[in-house]
Structure formats: structure tokens, C-alpha cells
Simulated assay, not measured.
Amino acid sequence: MTTTDRSRLGSRLQMARGWYWAFGVNGDPYAMLLCGQDDTPHHWYEQIRSASDGLFRSRSGAWVVTRYDTAAQVLRGPGFTRAAGEAAADWARPFLDVRSAAGLPLTAVDELALEYREVLARTGARFDLMRDLARETPVHGVTARLGLTGEDARRVAALLRSSATALDARLTPQPLAVTERTVAALADLRQQAGPEAVLAGAGCEAAANTVGNAVLATLRTPGLAGRLAEDPDLADRIVAETLRTAPPVHLEVRHATAGQTLEGTRIAEGDEVVVAVAAAHRDPRVFAEPDRFDPDRFDVDRALTPPPVTSNTDHPDGLEDFAARHAAAALRALADVLPGTALTGPVVHLRRSPVLRGISRCPVEIKDF
């Protein structure tokens, strides 16, 4: 099946989403998580954690990991691969290789902070944090680092925005028009900007959400904005805690390369294992007061024992580093104004975004801008 077969593709997308809803309302919390209809996913994570003494087997076919030790074993061990098996649904196949693309361009935080300051200077006192700052800065940075200017830069920037849903589309059926737009954008990015641009759309979206989550955590934690204004280096620890509580990628998909045992459960070769990274980072057996945002649980070198699990081990595509650098740069750029910054409306989250947990809108105002 190709995306030009619109009727068949639309039917497959609707059918898959319908099955997830059916599984979910009949007691499958992972299926409800895939439906992506909640602002916060943590109640589903806790239901998955408590649903089984071992791994949770979703009716979608995936094994789901929420415990820290097991998550680290899957993401850091040799027995699992990011490469997808042949059993992937046809509607998901165009997105399977996004994270196998070349790594994202990494830029020094100080240089990125200058870019955020330049964009901030154009926003005015009232603006949308996501639309006007968090999403624009990474996209323009990527086009510049690809050496693009003028119409070429504008065209690739539009493609990066259109491909932003690729990681979510791998697990959650998107509307037909969104699916077609994302597939077309990925193909055009490969042709116009090379394979290194394929991951960039999802990377820019992950960076934008990490910026948004870091800023929101700073605004919502009493006294933290003032501390950041006095010590901009605190940005590194705020970002480290943001990566723990709201990682750039909430769900990491792996496939077993051989039969093995996890948490007393036998996993067959080729089985899909999904690590709920944000749930593992809130494992109460490992992290004290796991739901509390506390940058002081990290030392000055952003080290935490035990460390948060990461998707980069053996799969170094740079997505997490890319997102972390943007968040640290944005906090440094905003450090002086965050004590006088306030939300002016509700924070709106994207739907069907269980992987990136996207933020759609975040209206803010800076006093004495």
C-alpha cells in the first residue's frame, strides 16, 4: 500500500485508531496512551506499572516497560534493536527509519542562546512561547546549518514543520491529511536537503517541547525563576530535571534480537518492547518524590545517581542532546525576564502525541519588556 491509495490508507488509519480505543476502554492503559487524548500521560503510566508484576502485555502486541532497571536494560543492553520487524503496520512503515537517519547538527549552547535572544527581541511583550520562540528557533537554526538561504531555506523550514509528527505517527495513527503531509515532507527533505535532514523535523519538535517544558517548570516552581536570574548556570540542572520528568521522547520502541527474559517474562525474538521513559524516570523505587520537580537533585555537573535512562546508548542520533542544548540556551536567553513572565492563557497540548507529548500553545507575557 502506498500513500497515494487514499481510501485504503484512510481506512487503515481509522481502523487502527478504532482498535486502540476498543482495547483502551476495555482495560488496556497502553492503548489509551496511544490514543493520545490526555494533557498528562502519567496516570496511564501508573496504571501500566500496577497492571502486572512483570512486563505489561498490551493487546496491541507490545510489551511495555515502566520500571527503571528494566528500561535501562532494554535501552543500554545488546539484546534489543531500534530496527523494526516485518510485522509493523503498513500505515506506520513510512516512519520506521526516521531515527536511523544521520545525527542532528549540535551547536554550542552559548551560540544557541544568542539565536534565542535574537528571536525573543522580535516577539514583543505578549507572545506564544511555542509558536513564536520554541518552534521557530530550532527550525531556522537547522536551515542555517544546512547552508540554506532565501527561498530554499523557507521551503525546507516548511518541510521541517510538516515532518514534525513523524515520531508520533510511528505509534499512533494520525489523521489522513497529516499522514500524507508528513510522508511527503520526509521524502522531499531527503531529496532537497539530504538524509541528515530526515530526523531534523522531529528533532526540532522535540527541542521545542523541551524548551516549553523547561520554561513551564521554571515558572511553576516557586522561587526558581528568581534563582535562574541570579545564576544562569542553574539552567543546566533545570534542563537535566526536565529531561527526567518530561523527556524529549516519552516512548522508545525496541525489538528483541533474540529470545530472552525480562522481569521474569519470556520475550521472543522480534517482539516489540516499548520503554515508557517518563514512567521509568518516576519509578518510586529509584527516585525520591519522583513527581516533584527538583533541579537540586542534580549536582553542578548535572549528574544524578542513578542516571536517567537514555535512548542514545548504541543509537547516537543526537536527538536528546539537540533538545537539551536548545532548552539550556532558551533558559539562558530568558533568565533575566522569567521572574516577570506569566502565563496569559491555558497551556494547550497536542493530541495523538504519545511519543513527543507536544505542546500546541503557551501564551505568555513579559512585564517591562
Rank of each mutant, 00 (worst) to 15 (best):
V65N: 08
T81D: 06
A71Q: 06
E86F: 14
A89K: 12
A83K: 14
W91E: 11
D90S: 12
R93C: 12
R59K: 12
R93W: 10
W44S: 06
Y45I: 04
R49I: 02
L96V: 09
R49T: 01
Y68F: 14
D97M: 09
V64T: 00
H43L: 13
A84D: 05
R82N: 05
L75G: 05
A62T: 00
Q47Y: 11
Q73R: 12
S58V: 01
R67S: 09
V65M: 11
Q47C: 07
R57L: 15
T70I: 15
L75E: 01
A72G: 06
V64W: 02
G54Y: 05
D97I: 00
D97K: 11
A87W: 06
A72N: 04
V65K: 08
F80E: 00
H42K: 01
D53N: 10
Y68P: 00
L75S: 04
T40Y: 13
P41N: 07
T40E: 13
A62V: 01
T81S: 15
S52W: 08
G85P: 02
S52K: 05
Q47R: 15
I48G: 03
T40I: 06
S52P: 00
I48C: 02
E86Q: 13
A72K: 07
S60M: 10
E86K: 10
G85D: 08
A71T: 09
S52T: 07
Q47S: 10
G79M: 08
P41W: 02
H43Y: 11
R49D: 02
I48A: 03
D69N: 10
W44N: 06
A83E: 08
A88R: 13
R67T: 06
R49S: 03
S60I: 10
A92K: 05
P94N: 11
R76P: 01
Q47D: 08
A87S: 13
D53F: 06
A92V: 07
D97F: 10
Y45M: 05
P41R: 00
D69M: 14
W44Y: 15
S50Y: 02
V74M: 09
G77T: 05
D97R: 14
G61W: 15
T40M: 07
P41Y: 07
G77N: 06
S58C: 05
F80N: 02
A51L: 08
A92Q: 11
G61V: 12
H43E: 13
G61S: 11
Y45L: 08
S58P: 01
